[in-house]
């Protein structure tokens, strides 16, 4: 039997929870069909999270692509179908894949598994980011290098902690509903061990009475705790937090059944959500908004 998992028309970090809610009661070896026929739009988080979802399944899932041509065209430009074809059985005709490097997307979906992959994405983003961040988002030229640094540290979380490969994507778009301004969004998703298990592997760690995904996220994201004893560790996420704070951005990290967020004044998200549907690994989103006069 195949269970159909419906993808909402607009897929982002918030609506992806609807996908996970449908997935939660199913065993990992149950055959699923991820039905994206009615999807019209997806954020970088939504697309990388769909690939991550496929990695968590013991039984290769099926995938029904969006029906809307322009949606397929955009998802294709992000590189989604190149990797989806490796992870899903595509239902119907698989969209013609665009060769890598021909896209208007800021950073196409890129697999991250090793240090060299981080060099690669940092090199690619530097070429494209300066123009977009300064001209389209009115950010200071200084923001460009910090942006690449933030991307580097976010990707390194996969290399250093996940225990398996993940995905990164970067895109700019106008966030009409919540902000009415353009944003640049970095999404980094993996289906690895997640923050709680990573911190549990720290040598000599003693568990406290309250120990769960939410607390692991608080320790890592807010207090800069790492599984390594080395006092130099934990600076990457702290640096990401500082960059996000400096440019009035938002950072959210989901792991296990919890999600933590550094929430700017323009957003009404809550800082910590617990009791979400469980999901393997860690999923991070960094959102930097366009700078407007007076901000």
């Amino acid at each position: 039997m195949t269970t159909v998992i419906n993808v909402p028309p607009s897929l982002d970090d918030v609506t992806f929870e609807q996908v996970l809610d449908q997935l939660a009661p199913l065993p990992a070896d149950e055959k699923i069909l991820v039905d994206a026929r009615h999807a019209r739009w997806a954020s970088p988080f939504g697309l990388t999270a769909l690939l991550t979802l496929a990695q968590t399944r013991a039984e290769r899932p099926a995938f029904a692509p969006p029906e809307a041509e322009e949606t397929v065209s955009y998802w294709n430009r992000t590189g989604f179908f190149r990797y989806a074809a490796e992870l899903f059985d595509i239902v119907g005709s698989s969209p013609r894949q665009k060769p890598a490097g021909e896209s208007d997307v800021l950073l196409e979906i890129t697999p991250i598994a090793k240090s060299d992959d981080v060099h690669e994405v940092v090199g690619r983003i530097q070429q494209k980011a300066q123009h977009i961040l300064t001209r389209e988002l009115n950010l200071d030229a200084k923001a460009t290098m910090g942006f690449a640094m933030t991307l580097s540290e976010a990707c390194q979380n996969i290399v250093e902690h996940a225990g398996r490969g993940g995905w990164v994507a970067v895109q700019t778009y106008k966030w009409t509903k919540r902000l009415g301004r353009r944003v640049v969004v970095i999404a980094v998703c993996d289906a690895g061990v997640g923050f709680r298990q990573s911190l549990e592997s720290a040598p000599g760690r003693t568990r406290s009475d309250r120990w769960d995904d939410a607390m692991a996220l608080e320790e890592a994201v807010v207090r800069g705790v790492s599984r390594f004893r080395d006092p130099g560790r934990g600076q990457g996420l702290a640096g990401v937090r500082r960059y996000v704070g400096r440019w009035d951005g938002k950072l959210s990290v989901r792991s296990g059944n919890a999600r933590i967020a550094i929430v700017p004044s323009w957003d009404d998200d809550v800082a910590l959500r617990e009791g979400l549907a469980p999901f393997a690994g860690a999923q991070m989103q960094i959102t930097i908004p366009e700078r407007t006069a007076g901000r």
Binding site: V122, Q126, M145, A148, M149, S152, E153, Q156, G232, R233, Q235, G236, A238, G239
Partner: peptide
């Protein structure tokens, strides 16, 4: 040197 990130600064300079 183009970009220096925190992790690399820690490895190259601090250590």
């Amino acid at each position: 040197v183009g970009l220096l990130d925190y992790s690399c600064a820690d490895e190259v300079v601090a250590k």
